[in-house]
Design a protein around this nucleic acid. Structure first.
Lengths: 215, 215
DNA sequence: GTATTTTTTTAGCAGTCAGTAAAAAAACAA
DNA sequence: TTGTTTTTTTACTGACTGCTAAAAAAATAC
C-alpha cells in the first residue's frame, strides 16, 4: 500500500514520475503570461514561477509558444466561458450587455491579475514570426464580436431592438469598447471607474422604446 | 559658391558634417516603431530603415528609448494636434465627437501605416524597466481623456448636454472606444468597418433633446 | 599645408534569449 | 539484481539584444 507520490490523476507506468503538477504549472505560466505579455515573459521567468527547469518545461509543453497557447485556452475557459454563456442566455438584451460588461470589468481587474484581458493584450507587439499566436488571439477577439452579433440578431427577433439595426457595426462597437477596457485596466483605473465606463456599453444600443405615455 | 551639402537647416561649424537628414531619419524610425512596437523594433531594424549605422543613431538620438520618445512626440504633433484642435473648436459637441472619431479612424488606417495608434499600442508589453516610456504613453492617453472631459464640460455650459452628465465616466468611455479602435485597426478591419464603429461614439452621449412637437 | 573637431565605418563587447545535450536519478519490469 | 524508460539537474549552445571602442574620413581653423 506504498503511497509514493499521488501528485496527480493518472499514476503513469514506467519511467521516473513527473515531480510537478502539470495543471498547477500551467496555471502559474498563465499568470506570468497574463501579467507580462508573451514576449517579455522569458522562459527563465516562466520556469521560476512554475518551479521547474527548462527541460521539464519543454518536455511537458513543447515550447514557449505552445505553452502560451495552452495557457490561453485555459484562461478562456476559466474566466470567460461562464460570463459568455450567461450573456447569451439572458433574455433581455439590455440587461445582457449591462451584466456582461460589468462582469468583464471585474475580470480585467481581478485582484490576483489586475492587468486587462490576456486575449487582447498578451500578444500585442509580438514578433511577426509567431503567426500561430497572432492568428489565435485574433480569432478569439473575432469570436467575441460574433457572440455580440448573434445576441443582437436574437434581440431583433425578439423585437427588443429595431430590425434595421446595423448589427455588424454595433457588435463591432461593443467589441471595441470591451477591448479598450483592457487598456484602461492596464493604465491603473479603479474598479469603480472601469465599471462606470463599462456602463456606457448599453448606451450604444438603440434606445429602448419608451412607453407611450398613457393618458 | 561651392554648394557642398545643404542637406539640412543649419550648416554647422567645425567637424565632419552629418551625412544624413536627422528629421528624415526620425520619420523613418517613427514608421518602424509605429508598425512593430517599441520592443520588437530592434536597433538593427531602425538603423536599416534610417540608413545609418548604430554609432550615428546613438550620437544623434542618445539611445533607443530617447529615439522612441522623440518619434512619439513627432507622431503626436504630426497626426493628432490638428484633429484635437478641431475637436475642441467645434461648437456642436455631437458634431465634434462624430468628426473626431471619423478622423481617428482615418489616421489609424492611414495607408502608409495602417496599424492603429502608436500611443496606444507601441509600448504595450514593454519591459518594466522602461519606466520613462511606460509613463509617457500613459500620460498621453490620459491627456486625451482630459481633452474629452474638457469638451464635455463646455457642452454642459453650452446647454448641449444635461448638467448632471457623468463627465469623467463618459470621457472615459469615449477614450476607451478610441483606444479600442487601435486594436480593431491592427486586426485588419477595413476603413469602412472602422468608421461604422467610430460612428457609435456619439451614441454614448446623452440623447440630443428632441424638439418638443409643436402643436 | 597642419591641427582640431566631429561623423563615419568596422568590428565587436557583455548580456540575454529560446532551446538542448548529457548524465544522474527515480520509477517499473524482468 | 539488472535492464528499460522517463524525468531530473546541470551546464551549455548559437543567435540576437542594445550599445560602444577604435580608427578612418571629412569638414573647419589656423
Amino acid at each position: 500500500m506504498t503511497a509514493k507520490r499521488v501528485a496527480h490523476a493518472t499514476s503513469q507506468g514506467k519511467g521516473r514520475p513527473r515531480a510537478f503538477d502539470r495543471a498547477q504549472a500551467l496555471t502559474r505560466a498563465l499568470t506570468v503570461f497574463w501579467r507580462k505579455g508573451y514576449a517579455p515573459a522569458s522562459v527563465a521567468d516562466l520556469c521560476k514561477a512554475m518551479e521547474i527547469n527548462p527541460p521539464s518545461l519543454y518536455a511537458a509543453f513543447g515550447n514557449k509558444a505552445s505553452l502560451f497557447l495552452e495557457a490561453l485556452r485555459h484562461y478562456e475557459q476559466t474566466y470567460w466561458e461562464a460570463p459568455s454563456r450567461r450573456f447569451m442566455a439572458n433574455p433581455d438584451v439590455y440587461a445582457a450587455v449591462d451584466s456582461f460588461f460589468r462582469e468583464a470589468a471585474q475580470i480585467l481587474l481581478s485582484p490576483e491579475t489586475p492587468c486587462g484581458c490576456m486575449v487582447v493584450l498578451a500578444a500585442i507587439n509580438i514578433s511577426e514570426e509567431e503567426k500561430a499566436i497572432i492568428e489565435t488571439v485574433r480569432e478569439l477577439r473575432l469570436a467575441t464580436k460574433h457572440m455580440f452579433s448573434d445576441r443582437l440578431r436574437q434581440a431583433i427577433q425578439d423585437g427588443q431592438i429595431p430590425p434595421d439595426t446595423d448589427v455588424p457595426a454595433l457588435a463591432g462597437a461593443l467589441n471595441t469598447l470591451l477591448e479598450g477596457l483592457s487598456i484602461q485596466a492596464r493604465d491603473g483605473l479603479f474598479q469603480s471607474e472601469l465599471k462606470a465606463i463599462a456602463a456606457h456599453a448599453v448606451r450604444m444600443l438603440p434606445p429602448r422604446p419608451t412607453m407611450p405615455a398613457a393618458r
